Simulated assay, not measured.
Amino acid sequence: MNSKTAIKIMLWILTAVILFHLSIILKIIPYDITWGGRLKNDTEMYVFETVSILINLFLCFILLIKGQYIRAFLSMKVVNITLWIFVIIFGLNTIGNIFAKTNFEKYFTLLTLASAILIWITLRKGKTQR
């Protein structure tokens, strides 16, 4: 798989994840089955979900820069370091999801593992070509 394909797949995954978090904010999906069941009230849910959406949007912009879909407002070195940080975060999140309390969260193990692998592919394949 080439870097461009990995970036496109990641952008689709991130779009789905953002829609998932929006559905929690809109109370289509109950928040008690997410975040390890640790959220106690609506205020906590709004804070966690808003931060999550912002982080996912940030990752989208980083991937858009890496794929040369938008003009770089950060150096490629910063983009690559940021992506390595996300590989580590997704890797740790994969381990956390394996030990999650709910089956719903355990299913996200595949998503976080796939995300770590796709970003790793993006980094390992070097510069993307248009």
Rank of each mutant, 00 (worst) to 15 (best):
G96F: 04
S23P: 03
K127M: 12
A72S: 15
I28H: 00
L64G: 06
R130H: 15
A116G: 12
K125P: 03
L26W: 11
Y107L: 15
K4Y: 08
I65E: 15
I7Q: 12
L110A: 15
I119M: 07
I55A: 14
G37A: 06
W12R: 10
I88S: 13
L111W: 10
T128C: 11
F104L: 15
K4C: 08
F73P: 02
K101E: 03
E49P: 10
K40I: 03
V47L: 13
L39P: 00
N41M: 06
V78S: 13
D32S: 01
R71A: 13
L113H: 06
M1V: 00
K27D: 10
A6K: 01
I121G: 02
T50K: 07
G67F: 06
A114V: 08
M45W: 04
W120N: 12
N103A: 12
L111D: 00
T82N: 09
I89K: 12
F90V: 08
F104W: 15
N97L: 06
K127D: 09
K125Q: 13
T102R: 10
W35L: 08
K101D: 04
M1P: 05
Y69H: 08
I65K: 09
I117C: 05
I24Y: 09
S3K: 14
I25A: 03
F108Y: 12
A114H: 00
Y31W: 08
F86Y: 14
G37C: 02
A116Y: 10
T112W: 10
I18V: 14
N2L: 08
C60M: 15
V87W: 08
N97G: 06
A16Q: 07
L92M: 08
L11F: 01
W35R: 07
S23L: 15
G37N: 05
L54G: 02
L74S: 06
I7G: 11
S115L: 04
L22N: 13
I117Y: 08
L74R: 05
L74A: 02
L83E: 10
I29V: 12
V17A: 13
W35D: 00
L54F: 14
H21P: 04
N80V: 14
G96I: 02
F90L: 11
F73R: 10
F61H: 08
G96N: 09
E44C: 00
L59D: 06
R124F: 14
I98W: 04
I98T: 05
F48S: 12
S3F: 01
I81A: 12
L54Q: 00
T109D: 01
L57E: 10
M76C: 00
M1C: 05
L22E: 12
K125A: 15
A72E: 15
K66I: 02
